[in-house]
């Protein structure tokens, strides 16, 4: 298990847990990121910029500061 900001780009993973406030959780959940959901980390912006994730056919960006609060594991 590792936090999403440390996840290797280009790999597929599964969300384990989200250590977020109620408000932040709703925002993240609206993009399909909830415990158990599968995602694909497509890219990371340089200079500590945001990550691009793919959940289902939805692609979105989120900041690293938020990603560090999301625990994930590599999908087998």
């Amino acid at each position: 298990m590792l936090s999403l900001d440390k996840f290797p780009p280009g790999c597929k993973g599964v969300v384990d847990s989200l250590d977020l406030s109620d408000e932040a959780f709703r925002r993240v959940a609206a993009f399909g990121l909830i415990p158990g959901s599968h995602f694909n980390l497509t890219r990371c912006a340089p200079f500590g910029g945001p990550l691009v994730l793919e959940v289902g056919s939805t692609r979105f960006l989120l900041r690293r500061s938020l990603a560090s609060l999301i625990q994930v594991r590599v999908a087998e």
Binding site: E23, A24, R27, F31, F60, L61, L62, S65
Partner: peptide, 8 residues
């Protein structure tokens, strides 16, 4: 809000 997400 730090929880900034944006659809691409």
């Amino acid at each position: 809000n730090e929880a900034f997400l944006l659809e691409v």
